Amino acid sequence: TELRLDINGREIKVDGADKETLKELLKLAEKNNDEKAIRIIRHLLER
């Protein structure tokens, strides 16, 4: 399955993203107070 998050109005594919990319996405999600995106990205970073 493909995991996509809508961050800042942009749909971004997050599964398969490297750790650096995920960290950047996490910063974006935190800036937007997007709890769902934050939770998902943190979960991916823990893998």
Rank of each mutant, 00 (worst) to 15 (best):
residue 1 T to W: 14
residue 2 E to S: 09
residue 3 L to R: 05
residue 3 L to C: 06
residue 4 R to E: 14
residue 4 R to A: 13
residue 5 L to D: 08
residue 5 L to W: 02
residue 5 L to S: 03
residue 5 L to H: 02
residue 6 D to R: 15
residue 6 D to N: 15
residue 6 D to T: 15
residue 7 I to W: 06
residue 8 N to C: 08
residue 8 N to I: 03
residue 9 G to E: 03
residue 9 G to S: 01
residue 10 R to S: 12
residue 11 E to G: 03
residue 12 I to A: 02
residue 12 I to M: 06
residue 13 K to G: 05
residue 13 K to W: 15
residue 13 K to T: 13
residue 13 K to S: 12
residue 13 K to M: 13
residue 13 K to C: 04
residue 13 K to H: 11
residue 14 V to E: 01
residue 14 V to A: 04
residue 14 V to D: 02
residue 14 V to Y: 02
residue 14 V to F: 06
residue 15 D to T: 06
residue 15 D to K: 05
residue 15 D to G: 06
residue 16 G to P: 15
residue 16 G to H: 10
residue 17 A to D: 12
residue 17 A to C: 05
residue 17 A to I: 06
residue 17 A to G: 12
residue 17 A to W: 08
residue 17 A to T: 12
residue 17 A to Q: 09
residue 18 D to L: 04
residue 18 D to W: 02
residue 18 D to Y: 03
residue 18 D to V: 03
residue 19 K to D: 08
residue 19 K to V: 11
residue 19 K to Q: 11
residue 19 K to S: 08
residue 19 K to N: 07
residue 20 E to G: 08
residue 20 E to R: 09
residue 20 E to F: 10
residue 21 T to G: 09
residue 21 T to Q: 12
residue 21 T to S: 10
residue 21 T to E: 07
residue 22 L to H: 00
residue 22 L to T: 00
residue 22 L to Y: 01
residue 23 K to D: 04
residue 23 K to E: 07
residue 23 K to M: 10
residue 24 E to A: 14
residue 24 E to H: 12
residue 24 E to V: 13
residue 24 E to N: 10
residue 24 E to M: 15
residue 25 L to A: 03
residue 25 L to G: 01
residue 25 L to W: 09
residue 25 L to E: 01
residue 25 L to S: 01
residue 25 L to C: 03
residue 27 K to T: 07
residue 27 K to W: 11
residue 27 K to N: 07
residue 27 K to R: 11
residue 27 K to S: 07
residue 27 K to A: 10
residue 28 L to V: 07
residue 28 L to K: 03
residue 28 L to G: 02
residue 29 A to D: 00
residue 29 A to E: 00
residue 30 E to K: 13
residue 31 K to H: 09
residue 31 K to N: 09
residue 31 K to L: 12
residue 31 K to P: 02
residue 32 N to K: 05
residue 32 N to C: 07
residue 32 N to Q: 10
residue 32 N to I: 11
residue 33 N to C: 07
residue 34 D to S: 06
residue 34 D to E: 08
residue 34 D to T: 02
residue 34 D to G: 01
residue 34 D to Y: 05
residue 35 E to S: 10
residue 35 E to C: 07
residue 35 E to Q: 12
residue 36 K to L: 11
residue 36 K to P: 10
residue 36 K to C: 05
residue 36 K to W: 10
residue 36 K to R: 10
residue 37 A to E: 01
residue 37 A to H: 03
residue 38 I to F: 07
residue 38 I to P: 00
residue 38 I to E: 04
residue 39 R to K: 07
residue 39 R to Y: 14
residue 39 R to H: 08
residue 40 I to S: 04
residue 40 I to M: 10
residue 40 I to H: 03
residue 40 I to G: 02
residue 41 I to A: 01
residue 41 I to R: 00
residue 41 I to V: 04
residue 41 I to C: 02
residue 41 I to T: 00
residue 41 I to Q: 00
residue 42 R to E: 04
residue 42 R to W: 08
residue 42 R to C: 03
residue 43 H to G: 08
residue 43 H to D: 10
residue 43 H to F: 15
residue 43 H to V: 12
residue 43 H to A: 12
residue 44 L to C: 04
residue 44 L to G: 01
residue 45 L to M: 05
residue 45 L to Q: 02
residue 46 E to R: 15
residue 46 E to I: 13
residue 46 E to W: 15
residue 47 R to F: 13
residue 47 R to Q: 13
